[in-house]
Nucleic acid binder design. Structure first.
Length: 616
RNA sequence: GGUCCCGUAGCUCAACUGGAUAGAGCAUCUGCCUUCUAAGCAGAGGGUUGCAGGUUCGAGUCCUGCCGGGAUCGCCA
């Protein structure tokens, strides 16, 4: 990224080197005291700590070095001692101020225990914004292959709100990383090979109702929905029965083993169940606007399992234990108990750890990624710890490949317990989207905004608003922490919400359209004044928010930034004349600022998986 | 019981990994639609960051001990 803070960090870093200080300590960032400065660098204090010296003295040396490095930046050479004497009374700290329009810094100040505060000139700020391509986002080079795993819905089950977070966070990370130059493959990685299917297939066969499955037409939406409905009702019944009855449980386990051995008729029924489920899943993910590059499942790696386990046995990594085949992954250095990872259960069936390992085998073979990232519920952290240890132990991946479980917190209800509907069940994703869409439609009608829209546009706008509300409400939360699922919040359109961001983008669109209708070209230079500076400064922070999001697999940083930007624009919009501005060059400059803001908002929202309607 | 995570405004959440005066939204209150979309703007009130110590120029953030909540601990995923 060549964000403004990176450029400033490089410059101040040079000054550090010049002053004989380690430049790694330099990280210029947006000041958290905007009343004092635009940017700050805390490196002098860190350097002082290392060298056991006075941080203000260090900061002075850095400022002197800055002057030497950038003659012309300052009106005259920085005589630190004199300036301190001169300006001390004025500002309570010493600083250097220039009015040179070609300068980069307009003010450099040392404050408090040793903060180096930096202000840049409006001219440099304008120049930066005009010349930066992609808003300062520079794609990594060379590109790196990344596999992102963020699906995980089980086939034969309706998708519910529990699948929301993985989908939304993962899809956003896919978009963000892709934009930042990574070669990303998003994999839905469905649960299609587990015991729940043995249970379900056994139930169909016992009841003699397998034709319900086999006669379903994958092409026909109603037919698909009907089977999904049937399976959705059947599974809890079968699962409950198996818990009560040992024979049924055994039957389900045996069926699972037969299925995993691809025996008929089990495998044939399964194939149909999977095809139907995928059709249903694609529809739901489609409504959410969540996309995948790979529609793979656990079953797809089945053929990798036997050779993988064989290899592990030969090399002694896999051992027999209580009738099962396991990989011991505990280590002496552990201060916690890590159970061995089970490859084959006593009954011969595989577990999801087995398929997860085999999936890594396949991913290495087919894609050879440098990162594999799992966006999966935090509660599975032990599982991933086991899997990662097992594949490293067995040399399936080498040490420079990153394996990350980017876990997310549980979605709780208002009572602090995992979210349940009033009926005690889980809320379906389809129902959630429907509720939000209806609410958005009502809002359109209420504001009389849709009166001149046709039915299609009205539906499209309502859908975009609904998805924006749901996604933004989720994405703005820090990934790791549990959070409260609040239907009112998820379908709220005011305040810090997705629709608020859409609204700001739409207002700019509308304004720019008006400008174009009036014959404006929107290609003028930026000439920043008092009213424009805050917005312009905000616009430089986009790449930083992306970088933070990538580093932490945490899209909420981007959300935070976009919300600030939208607020900044809204404030600008309320306080400044744009189309009605009499000063022609100022008008042009402001239109330009609007254009950049709009582009960035729209791009940023797109990276969150949110689309902006033409109007709302 | 072992291990791990969490505790920030009435509520829901941030705080760029140790920085300055802890920020947003909702809710409450006060203004603003006769100029570009009021899904908006300007402003007010609201905090002992669970408690008690410690580390240092400096702690919501790090270390210790409590209190409270949650997750997880071999044949489910």
């Amino acid at each position: 990224m060549t964000s403004l803070t990176h450029i400033l960090s490089d410059i101040v870093g040079e000054a550090f080197t010049h002053a004989g200080l380690p430049k790694e300590l330099v990280q210029v960032r947006v000041s958290d005291r905007p009343d004092l400065a635009q940017f700050q660098c805390n490196g002098a204090m860190a350097a002082a700590k290392q060298a056991k010296k006075n941080p203000r003295e260090i900061a002075k040396k850095v400022c002197s070095a800055l002057t030497e490095l950038m003659p012309g930046t300052f009106i005259e050479d920085l005589d630190v001692d004199r300036i301190e004497y001169v300006l001390n009374e004025e500002k309570g700290s010493f600083s250097y101020i220039t009015s040179d329009p070609n300068a980069l810094f307009s003010e450099v100040t040392i404050a408090g225990p040793g903060f180096i505060n930096l202000n840049i000139t409006d001219a440099y700020l304008a120049d930066y914004l005009e010349k930066r391509e992609n808003y300062g986002v520079t794609p990594i080079s060379p590109s790196e292959k990344v596999v992102l795993d963020y699906g995980g819905p089980n086939i034969a089950k309706a998708m519910h709100v529990g699948h929301l977070r993985a989908a939304i966070i993962g899809d956003s990370l896919r978009r963000i990383m892709s934009y930042a130059g990574y070669d990303v493959l998003g994999d839905v990685h469905m649960g299609d090979w587990g015991t729940h299917l043995g249970m379900l297939i056994a139930d169909y066969l016992r009841e003699g109702e397998e034709s319900l499955v086999l006669d379903t037409d994958v092409e026909d939406e109603a037919s698909v929905a009907k089977l999904m409905e049937d399976m959705g009702a059947r599974y809890p019944k079968a699962s409950g029965a198996a818990k009560e009855n040992e024979d049924l449980k055994k039957e389900a386990q045996e069926t699972t083993v037969k299925l995993q051995n691809k025996e008929q008729p089990y495998y044939g029924i399964w194939e149909k169940i999977r095809a139907v489920s995928v059709a249903g899943m694609k529809k739901t993910y489609g409504k959410l606007g969540v996309e995948f590059d790979l529609w793979k499942g656990e079953a797809d790696v089945h053929d990798y399992i036997a050779p993988m386990v064989e290899d592990m046995r030969e090399k002694g990594w896999a051992v027999e234990s209580d009738g099962a085949w396991v990989v011991p992954v505990a280590s002496n250095e552990d201060n916690k108990k890590i159970p061995p990872m089970i490859l084959y259960k006593r009954d011969g069936a595989v577990m999801y750890g087995t398929t997860d390992c085999a999936t890594i085998v396949e991913r290495v073979k087919l894609y050879d990624p440098v990162k594999m990232v799992y966006v999966v519920d935090q509660r599975q952290s032990l599982h991933f710890e086991q899997v990662f240890r097992a594949v490293r132990k067995a040399d399936i991946v080498n040490d420079n490949v990153e394996l990350t479980h980017a876990g997310f917190g549980t979605m709780n209800g208002k009572d602090g317990k995992p979210f349940k509907t009033r009926e005690g069940g889980v809320m379906r994703l389809e129902d959630l989207i429907k509720m939000a869409t209806e609410k958005a439609e009502a809002r359109l009608d209420e504001a009389n905004l849709a009166s001149d829209m046709d039915e299609e546009e009205r539906g499209d706008v309502a859908h975009k608003v609904a998805i924006a509300a749901i996604k933004f409400a989720d994405l703005q939360n820090q990934r790791q922490a549990d959070y409260v699922f609040d239907l009112d919040r998820l379908t709220s359109f005011e305040g810090k919400t997705g629709p608020y961001l859409l609204y700001q983008a739409v207002r700019i669109k509308s304004l720019l359209n008006k400008a174009k209708d009036a014959g404006e070209k929107i290609d003028g230079d930026l000439a920043l004044g008092e009213g424009d500076r805050d917005l312009a400064l905000l616009l430089t922070q986009f790449p930083d928010s992306l970088q933070l999001s990538i580093n932490g697999y945490a899209p909420h940083h981007l959300c935070e930034y976009l919300h600030k930007l939208a607020q900044g624009f809204s404030s600008f919009y309320g306080n400044c004349h744009i189309l009605s501005e009499n000063d022609e060059s100022l008008k042009q400059s402001r239109l330009q600022l609007c254009q950049v803001t709009m582009n960035q908002l729209e791009k940023g929202l797109e990276l969150l998986g949110i689309l902006v309607p033409a109007r709302m």
